[in-house]
Design a binder for these strands. Sequence first.
RNA 1: CGGGGCGUAGCGCAGCCCGGUAGCGUACUCGCUUGGGGUGCGAGUGGUCGUGGGUUCAAAUCCCGCCGCCCCGACCA
Length: 568
Amino acid sequence: MKTSQLLIPTLREDPVEAETVSHRLMLRAGLIRKTAAGIYTYLPLGLRVIRKIEQIIREEMNRAGAQELLMPIASPAELWKETGRWDYYGKELLRFKDRHERDFCLGPTHEEVITDLFRREVRSYRQLPLNFYQIQTKFRDEIRPRFGLMRGREFIMKDAYSFDSDEAGARTSYQKMYDAYTRIFTRCGLTFRAVEADTGLIGGDVSHEFMVLAETGEATVAYSDQSAYAANLERAEVLPPTDIDDAPLRHLTPVTTPQCRTVEEVTAFLKIPPRQLVKTLIYNTGKDTVAVLIRGDHELNEVKLARLLQVTEVRLAESEAVKSLTGAPVGFAGPVGLPGVRIVADHAVHGMKNLVVGANRADTHYMDANQDRDFKIDQFADLRNAQAGDPSPRGAGSLTLAKGIEVGQVFLLGTKYSKSMNATILDEKGQERLAVMGCYGIGVGRTAAAAIEQNHDDKGIIWPFPIAPFHVHLLPVSQSTTTAEATARLYEDLLAGGFEVLWDDRNDRAGVKFNDADLIGAPIQVVVGDKGLADGVVEVKVRRSGVKSRIAPSDVVHHLRILSATTA
RNA sequence: CGGGGCGUAGCGCAGCCCGGUAGCGUACUCGCUUGGGGUGCGAGUGGUCGUGGGUUCAAAUCCCGCCGCCCCGACCA
């Protein structure tokens, strides 16, 4: 392709709206343009990257035995009402009415649609296992889209759904997808980790997220330094501590702590370490109110709390609610004499003695409060976020925290959807039974963004070979007919050699071409100019290393074959 | 939705405090020049200053409403 035939509107300066590296570079390199908040147009170069990733996904999904189909973007409300997600999904589901006033939504995911297809078309266990996938535009009306393709409202997703006749089969299907995902992200040239994950709105029993490790990631990953354990921070288990404080119990003593609301303020005022204080957080579950006790230096994990309380969402109580419950302003809540409310505590609180807690009175805390004697805890559970250095919950080692971008997630759904939608098959005994499902997603645009986050320098993008929009950027830097002819010959040779070539045929100075080439990030640049041709060579530059070699034009294809095999 | 910030030419910005016929850089067009890391000179094109209202002889500038966008939090591929 010639540059003059493609719209590649590179920008010299950073657009202000873009903060993260991938967003900035996608705009600057002319890959995407914004159409509305969280909604983007893929320009020719950006689309080529998307198509490359899609192709890798297709090949690996097909290899894993999945079959491609394409479901509609608009789906009728009835299906969503069957599973209850019409109400449950909330505002993220973009709804609209057709001309007959019938309710529809734009599909944010397709469990309902595929399960409907399955129950109509599949009758027998003999047809299983089945795995259907599609690569399609999804719409989720995100509260705050950001970072370009990283979190758009409209985005391209590969989603797959497996159906098995029993749990064991479903696990096999799950594992196949897990393995396929591993191959996909490896082929895309990404450094990633599969981590145990929470199941969120999709639901189900088991889930892994595929996290590309990058500083700009929105998720935090906890992984063991000595074993395979890795989990999303939301999910990472924390073992109950084994040490128990055996200090003698001291008398419960109120102390005045004027204006000391936060852990920092109280512990600084009392000159105690944060780990000796227990903070009391008042939470609403929608149904009722609970008090949660967490050690001062720990962080409550709301996902774990919601799971413990078996509700979908927990929310910190409003300050007015805290006041009326505790009789004190926010900052002085404590478990001692807290009336008629369920008290749950993190495991770490279990072994503690002589705690500092709020006294449910303005500007007052208690010192040396003790459980059972001064207050009662209804239940202990794992409620805090894992911290770096915590022992790995399974296997050896201790945990390290890192930031990650979630590019894919696999779920073992069980019968959640087949049950609510009555998707059954007949087993070998002629008995009707629910299909056991799994679902599997990959964010295609997000994968591209993650690749940029992981592969760039201050000049621009450095595409991994398999997903580069072009393999080779051909850069004539002289205006002579010698250079023009040599470039044209080389272009034909490279195409014949199976390379995708972007030929910068603009009448611009060398510097302009070099800068654009570095920005666009094709893994290999071939520079053709009078100087080199006089010596019978052209210059081959590897974008990532910057290493340049002088190669005879007739040897370029051979040389690039070797390079492409090693620079992927 | 809560908190912070911003809307002036395709992009990056100044002008606003102190009202008086809209400017810089870049990009784009033309001419000459240059020709291996964003060449130089000159001449141009392009803006109802987000939008609606108000104050005023006069509003980009002051006041009020609305809309949009970005960043931080709660959600997710």
